[in-house]
Design a protein around this nucleic acid. Structure first.
Lengths: 236, 236
DNA sequence: AACATACTCATACGTTGTAAGGTTGTCAAC
DNA sequence: GTTGACAACCTTACAACGTATGAGTATGTT
């Protein structure tokens, strides 16, 4: 429609911040966070490493942008960051929101590590927490309790919890198992638990648990605890 | 006593794994985790970088050793990793244990990052979790509930919780504040909370909270929630 | 035709972990 | 003593990383 709008005429489509961020997400999805280097990212875009620096300040800025992209996905998943007017069941609303965020995290398993590495929050993250806080408030909590609640949820509010010590290679996993075997006479409770928890006996380590189940369990303990405190403070 | 046992005769005290680990802790304490490089660590010990590799396999091994050192500190703080025979108040016992671990973490603020970076757990960490689990069991929980409880506590069992987004430079902090100001008309709840929470008005960001208070709050919500579930399952 | 602007690239530096192989110090055996 | 083995440490070098610097190249304006 424009006078000279043939895309083919342009020898190359110029980069943008957004394309860099999107490519970064794709690269991390495909090859992991460790593979997300400026050079690899440039190659992903058919460009040299230093060309990226015309569009982004540095790698930190890339990671910030990546998080904004993730938050945008969460926004789509929960249909925006607004607070449903009056909240009759804040627990259920928050639970849905958080599990929606978690679905996004499961699509991008590296994302939690990026969140943890960040030191200042972007706009969409603030908006997200605003909506969480708003839900708590409209649900009937005091600002004080909601504040504590936000801290208590921590990263869980964003849909993830750092699972400590998850072996990532089979060799490492086996090494842990051997070490465990080696001292298992000092571990009556752990061996007891493993024999009872797992169906096939105590060969499996702690890592083999259903993350989703555990996530929801902890989330519910927290939500119910906060609800109890809310009731306590309203009846006081 | 030995025929040739004059220590002075030795021109230099040889390195050991242990000395490397100790020096690593001291270095991280003094200059932060980022400053803990193999070269800096070597310099700390008056030696060249590659000399370290005679005693430790690689940097990962150093970090593993550092964690063992931290766990040893925790062990001292709680007087060993044993389980008090019958536990009349498991909540109180666990609370003390965890807050003791937290005191160690506060002495080494970089330690949580190391824990999160690790992928396989060392012996002393397993022993620690064994003692936590044992306390829950002796307190009357089923293995199933105790298992969920371990996951629910997560890193909190070790005395820390990753505080997301803590600005580490004054410039960054100010940048966040400005950004916050810029969109604060979209943040009724957050501004409302800040005016009510802080004494001096809403200039302060979310980062300025009493970590210890928030840690204990979340810990207590979890412990009480688990206790409630324990009672529910024993009366069933 | 000349120039400004927007964008991209080539080269290079400092830092990191660490592989490969050399140097030294100590001690036992001949 | 000389020799040889072994332990402990060092020198050099490399690949990968983030990125500073300045030069190139296209496009649009005047």
């Amino acid at each position: 429609m424009a006078i000279e709008a043939d895309p083919k005429a342009k020898t190359r489509v110029p980069l943008t911040k957004e394309r860099v961020h999107e490519a970064a997400v794709e690269l991390a999805d495909r090859e992991g966070l460790k593979a997300l280097t400026m050079r690899a990212l440039a190659q992903e875009l058919g460009v040299e490493a230093m060309s990226l620096y015309y569009h982004v300040a540095n790698k930190e800025a890339v990671l910030d942008g990546v998080l904004e992209a993730i938050m945008a996905e969460i926004g789509e998943e929960i249909g925006g960051f607004s607070v449903p007017e009056p909240v009759d069941d804040w627990k259920a609303v928050l639970r849905d929101r958080i599990l929606a965020a978690r679905r996004v995290m499961l699509r991008h398993p590296w994302a939690p590590d990026v969140f943890e590495s960040r030191t200042n929050m972007g706009v969409s993250i603030i908006l997200y927490f605003e909506s969480i806080l708003g839900t708590m408030r409209e649900g009937g909590m005091s600002y004080d309790l909601a504040h504590h609640g936000l801290h208590a949820l921590g990263s869980r509010a964003l849909g993830f919890s750092q699972e400590l010590f998850r072996p990532d290679t089979p060799e490492q996993d086996q090494a842990s198992a051997e070490m465990f075997d080696c001292i298992k006479d000092q571990l009556p409770y752990l061996t007891g638990m493993l024999t009872e928890i797992t169906h096939d006996g105590p060969e499996e380590t702690l890592g083999w648990c259903d993350d989703q189940t555990e996530f929801e369990f902890a989330l519910d303990v927290l939500l119910e605890g906060l609800e109890r405190l809310r009731i306590a403070e309203t009846s006081a």
